[in-house]
Amino acid sequence: MSNIPQISLNDGNSIPQLGFGVWQVPDDEAHPAVAAALRSGYRLIDTAEGYDNEEGVGRAIAESGIPRDQLFITSKLRNGAHDYEEAKKAFDLSAEKLGLDYLDMFLIHWPVPEQDKYADAWRALVELKNQGRIRSIGVSNFLPSHIDRVVAETGVKPVINQLELHPQYQQRDIRGYHDQHDIKIECYSPLGSGAVLDNETIAEIAEKHGKSVSQIILRWELDQGLIVIPKSTHEERIAENFDVFGFELDDEDRRRIDGLDDPENGKTGSFPETMNSLF
């Protein structure tokens, strides 16, 4: 198995700290991209029902020849399937498309506060975990108030909250909450959806180390104990993003990147408070 650091979760399981994401990757491109990622050494693959590429991901997994117990496969529940019974049906369909008997992790993709059914969806995930269909359950884009509610209603904590997090949007205001409750943060858009790649400060640090900007960003995130899932459809970049364990940032590098945080303007995606689209 690849020598990727493992992060311990609050349910006793563990997850590779570095994985491969396929957001905005069409199904026909997901197949070769995931195949390239698996060849490069990635073992955590992150998809979602809403990405409409689970079948392509599943084909790559099936063709890889990698033993199932060496893979960590994550998907996420559609916003339009938060009803208790619908959530269980949606999970069954995800597993079928991926060609898997179980998933290592399944997340609620968004809380969708206007719909106000995320607690029902969480109950469904708890049941599926109890049945052994899912090893670990978590959430994505949840605010602390959303997490507090599902824990209060079920007594079960998410293992992970998957959040947009990168140098220009560092989520410092809620890091302490997650630490206190032993809920790990998994960074989606860890490169800021490309918005951070032309940052002059990071470019200077990259030149200093003889590395790419993306490698510097990923190393900075890994150093903080965050789980990261960069995305690319280019085989050379997929491999480059995996090659982030052979160098170290120094304290000055980290201080400079820490200083790039822009909580007011740095976010590139939707906000949990107002994301109510039922995809």
Score class of each variant (00 low, 15 high):
224 Q>F: 07
240 E>Y: 10
228 V>N: 08
239 A>R: 07
224 Q>K: 15
220 W>K: 03
220 W>P: 01
224 Q>D: 05
221 E>P: 12
217 I>V: 15
233 T>G: 11
215 Q>D: 08
221 E>T: 09
244 V>R: 06
219 R>Q: 05
233 T>R: 12
244 V>I: 15
237 R>S: 13
242 F>C: 10
234 H>K: 15
224 Q>T: 11
222 L>G: 02
240 E>N: 12
243 D>L: 10
236 E>C: 14
220 W>M: 07
233 T>S: 11
234 H>N: 07
232 S>C: 11
240 E>T: 04
220 W>G: 00
235 E>L: 12
239 A>L: 12
238 I>N: 03
233 T>W: 05
218 L>Q: 04
215 Q>C: 14
240 E>W: 06
215 Q>W: 14
223 D>G: 09
216 I>M: 12
232 S>T: 03
232 S>G: 03
232 S>Y: 10
224 Q>S: 04
244 V>C: 05
218 L>A: 01
238 I>P: 02
240 E>S: 10
220 W>T: 00
232 S>P: 11
243 D>F: 05
227 I>C: 09
222 L>W: 08
230 P>S: 12
236 E>R: 13
237 R>A: 02
215 Q>E: 14
232 S>L: 11
226 L>Y: 15
222 L>S: 05
219 R>C: 10
223 D>R: 10
234 H>E: 13
236 E>P: 08
230 P>M: 03
241 N>Q: 06
228 V>C: 07
243 D>K: 06
236 E>T: 12
231 K>A: 04
219 R>S: 02
223 D>P: 00
222 L>N: 02
231 K>L: 03
229 I>W: 14
217 I>C: 00
228 V>P: 06
218 L>C: 02
221 E>Y: 14
236 E>K: 15
243 D>V: 10
243 D>P: 07
226 L>C: 03
223 D>T: 06
237 R>P: 01
226 L>I: 15
230 P>V: 08
233 T>M: 15
215 Q>V: 11
225 G>Q: 07
237 R>K: 13
224 Q>W: 09
237 R>H: 14
228 V>H: 01
225 G>L: 09
234 H>Y: 10
242 F>D: 06
225 G>R: 04
219 R>D: 02
223 D>V: 05
229 I>Q: 08
226 L>W: 14
224 Q>V: 01
243 D>C: 03
219 R>K: 12
219 R>P: 04
241 N>L: 06
223 D>Q: 13
223 D>N: 13
221 E>F: 12
244 V>D: 00
235 E>K: 15
221 E>N: 15
240 E>H: 08
225 G>K: 10
224 Q>A: 15
227 I>F: 14
238 I>G: 00
220 W>Y: 14
233 T>C: 11
239 A>S: 15
229 I>H: 08
216 I>N: 08
237 R>D: 01
237 R>W: 11
216 I>T: 08
241 N>E: 04
220 W>I: 06
226 L>N: 10
218 L>K: 03
238 I>T: 06
225 G>N: 02
229 I>K: 04
234 H>G: 03
241 N>I: 00
240 E>R: 05
223 D>M: 12
229 I>D: 02
220 W>C: 01
233 T>A: 08
228 V>L: 01
239 A>H: 06
219 R>V: 03
238 I>M: 07
232 S>D: 08
230 P>T: 10
217 I>K: 07
215 Q>I: 09
239 A>C: 03
235 E>S: 15
